[in-house]
Amino acid sequence: MTNIAYIRVSTVDQNTDRQLDGMTFDKVFTDKLSGSDTNRPQLLAMIEWARAGDVVHVHSIDRLARSMADLLKIVSDLNAKGVHVKFHKEDMKFTGEDSPMQKLMLNMMGSFAQFEREVMKERQREGIAKAKEKGVYKGRVKTVDDTAILALLNAGKSVRAVAVELDINPSTVQRAKKAAQASA
């Protein structure tokens, strides 16, 4: 039996120290990404690495997933491999042979995690809308100047080639091109 820790914070600036503090594990997987989906390198590596008889330790349910569907799938997939999942904050362990009450609790706690995420996103949208009304919100700062984009386009390069060369999204190139055409 291997004791595996899965630790997640939402951004690279956040500290993971409080999660599973003082405990010792055979293997630790840490992501510094949003829990809004399962496209997290260390989560995927942990799921791949875990074997029958192992126990995955997670600080709390919302650290594993912020989506109800993702949470249920991750726990179910691990249980199907014979891997147990232990959530320390909630003091709950899922083995695949769980009681109806445990399943209800997982669903309820997962619903709260998803609800919290949706409320955060709603507040963010409201804040951005208010800032736009006041003329304060201008969006993200450009990393590449439009003149550099236009110079490459005028040199005969395609939108995709410019995007690759400048390491930007093709839609950014399209916007610069469209703005230049509108002002001409």
Rank of each mutant, 00 (worst) to 15 (best):
D21Y: 14
T2R: 15
G156Q: 00
N39R: 15
A151D: 03
M101F: 03
M109K: 15
L43F: 03
L150E: 01
K73R: 13
G82V: 10
P170D: 07
S34V: 12
V119R: 08
Q181S: 07
G53N: 00
K81I: 04
M101L: 08
A69Y: 14
E133R: 13
R123G: 01
L44R: 12
S34E: 07
T2L: 15
T38V: 01
A184P: 09
Q174N: 11
K103H: 12
G110F: 10
M108P: 13
V164C: 11
A113P: 01
N39V: 15
D91Y: 01
D21E: 14
K86Y: 04
D167R: 04
R8I: 12
A155F: 03
Y137P: 05
T30I: 13
L166Q: 10
E90T: 10
Q174T: 14
A80W: 07
Y6Q: 14
R66L: 00
T16P: 15
M101Q: 12
E165K: 15
I168D: 00
N15I: 14
V56M: 08
D91L: 02
T30E: 09
M92S: 10
K89C: 01
H88Y: 12
A52L: 06
K93T: 07
E133W: 05
K27E: 15
Y137C: 06
A65Q: 02
H88L: 08
D91P: 00
R117P: 03
V159K: 14
M109W: 11
H57V: 06
V173I: 02
L64T: 02
A129L: 10
A113R: 10
D91C: 06
V55C: 06
T16M: 06
N169C: 11
D98Y: 04
V83Q: 08
S158N: 10
A176C: 09
A52M: 14
D54G: 06
K177H: 02
A182Y: 04
M1P: 03
V58H: 09
S34D: 00
L106N: 14
A65S: 14
Q181Y: 01
Q114K: 07
L64H: 09
D26W: 00
S76M: 10
D54H: 08
T147N: 08
P170V: 05
S99T: 08
V144Y: 00
V83T: 06
L153M: 00
K132S: 05
K93A: 15
V9W: 13
A163P: 06
A113S: 10
T2Y: 13
R125W: 00
E116G: 08
L33S: 11
N79C: 14
V9D: 05
E133P: 00
F87Q: 05
K177R: 06
S67M: 08
D37I: 01
S111F: 07
M101D: 05
D70Y: 02
G82R: 07
L152K: 08
E122M: 12
I149W: 02
A129T: 13
K142S: 13
Q181M: 11
L20M: 07
F29D: 10
